[in-house]
Write a protein that binds this DNA or RNA. Structure first.
Lengths: 337, 337
DNA sequence: CTTGGCACTCGGGAAGCGTGAGTGCCAGGG
DNA sequence: CCCTGGCACTCACGCTTCCCGAGTGCCAAG
């Protein structure tokens, strides 16, 4: 249905439009790429491409512009991820290697992505659901006030204050601590919820009220905290005149962490690099943008996702290369630490 | 030098310009405000005001626009903070009261400020410097890996992983924990630094290497962490056509937390409400904006600052009212918890 | 000091014009 | 059947021109 040349034409149109930001016409196409046919031929091809919905003209007698569908085809079949220069790679590695602590890793990752792509970077904190409990610490701050600290193997630390229903002694707390650690150490958070739920019975009736309070906090922390945090960077790149259009909507969508989470969730299954183009995005405010996302994680597991958001008219091969490289290196760093 | 009527004229100009976003002329001034003099008189006054640098005309034969100096006078002498409606107050209180934990308080505060003022909200996390150490917990994750958790009376929890130079036993760590808590509990963080520095000697030589590692991490956390975190909200309000001008610069400046910190630091001394107008701002990218800031804190102490950033052409009385009210309520919430 | 009158200025919108890039279609040639 | 050159057609965009009206400064009189 679309012969090789028509595909080549589409590819050329996307490339030119991305680099010039102006509708591209038949003549300039033949000039810039060495398709050895005449402009007229190209025009015929373009007519077909337009009929099929891959390109469109902003107004009669202007050049053509790719549609979302056009970009989609381009991404799927006409382009390959462009690997980063080795200089870039080294820079990424050393910059990430200097990170100290999970927060720092995430922050550096965001900066890297934003800088490499000159677009908006989105990084999700590693998810807890696959993480494993490494330690639980209870700190008695006052007879009726307790601090619960939960540490996972991903280096994440969650803490929460608990008001106890009854006065407590150091010994009670020590017992509770021992019980919790014995039961939970090395377990996945998902399993841990079930375990904690069944734990109340192993507590002597005397301390049961306090224990229940602690348990419920722990469970809340484990489950509810699945709504993870997201970090943004490079927002300033939105101001590039590229898409002043809909800027407000985009900024608004970006501020809604919940919305962003959902989008990322929809985006790619697991660790594959995935691209969401324009109207493919379920969030209205983001339908003028494209999102290149990838999972990342340590070992074989995908802990969370990161992404780059830019105008539909974006350098897909380059962005994909950057996202994929950064995802890989972050994974490595996480594994080491 | 400036009689009452001239001041009234300046006030009127500011008010009109803020609400219409168009240069204001002599005629419309007399119409909208009931100054019972003729336009010609106003023109004379305006000429004087312009000569003194309080207003300016974008081009000949356009109305006048306030200068930074004009806004400054307006804020200092011509306007009063406009208190919030009691409905707004109640809304703030209930919304903040639902907050759970420091993070949540800060997040809600940011949202409130952004929504109330329809501008960009900036909230600094409560500073540690005045806080008091409540507890230090050491968690032994592995023979050579330790987690240090520092808890302050403001409910803040700082944690950090430490790689120990030597293998450790549970007992060693317990001793260290006891020592630290005995020395630091109830001390201000600022004092604590000095104390920890002198603590190495009280450790038996055997464990000294490990202790030193822990101490240095604690000190680093206390001192260095003075560079606090900042949370932003309402960035989408920047897209309001008001000041598309310099948007990029503003976004850029906002992303640089360090820069923002410095600005907030310069801004107000202590808990007073303070306003920084246009070029008064040391950061170049923010010289088209004004910043209304206030300290907030629990008890008598100022723990940190919060602010609202908007175009120079902003509703100062309203913004000041909102900032001041939110600051007060956040303080109260912090005190309770 | 205020006021009405008056001439002047000039930004900005409306209208008109020309240009050129780009198109679709067609008829002829490999 | 597909490619090609030719040709007439279409518009967005940039340019000028023009006009209008809001707003000004100045001045002389009250």
């Amino acid at each position: 249905m679309l012969d090789d040349r028509k595909l080549a034409v589409l590819r050329a149109i996307v490339e030119d439009y991305v680099s010039t930001n102006e509708p591209v016409g038949s003549k300039s196409l033949v000039d810039r790429h060495n398709l050895d046919v005449s402009p007229a031929t190209i025009r015929n091809d373009m007519a077909v491409l337009e009929e099929q919905g891959y390109i469109t003209q902003p107004h009669t007698s202007a050049g053509r512009v790719p549609t979302d569908k056009g970009y989609r085809l381009f991404v799927d079949r006409l382009s390959h991820m462009k690997p980063l220069s080795s200089a870039d790679r080294r820079a990424i590695q050393t910059y990430l290697a200097q990170a100290y602590g999970l927060d720092d890793v995430v922050m550096r990752t965001v900066r890297l992505l934003a800088q490499l792509t000159r677009q908006v970077a989105v990084v999700q904190y590693p998810s807890l659901t696959r993480a494993v409990v490494r330690h639980i610490e209870l700190v008695r701050l006052a007879p009726e006030k307790l601090l619960v600290v939960l540490i996972t193997d991903t280096g994440r630390v969650e803490q929460r204050m608990v008001d106890l229903p009854e006065r407590s002694e150091d010994d009670d707390i020590a017992h509770l601590r021992a019980l919790l650690n014995a039961s939970l150490d090395g377990r996945r958070l998902t399993e841990a919820v079930a375990i904690v739920a069944g734990l109340t019975e192993s507590v002597p009736p005397a301390g049961r009220a306090n224990a229940a309070a602690v348990f419920s906090v722990i469970m809340a922390n484990l489950v509810e905290r699945n709504e993870e945090r997201i970090v943004l960077g490079g927002t300033a790149n939105l101001a590039a005149p590229d898409f002043s259009q809909g800027l407000r909507e985009v900024l608004q969508a970006l501020e809604e962490q919940v919305v962003l989470m959902r989008v990322l969730g929809n985006a790619s299954d697991e660790s594959l690099l995935s691209v969401m183009i324009g109207r493919e995005n379920p969030v209205e405010g983001l339908q003028t943008t494209s999102l290149v996302s990838s999972g990342y994680g340590s070992g074989g597991e995908t802990l969370a996702k990161l992404a780059v958001l830019g105008p539909t008219r974006m350098d897909y091969p380059g962005t994909m290369g950057a996202v994929s490289a950064v995802a890989r290196y972050v994974g490595e760093i996480l594994m080491e630490s």
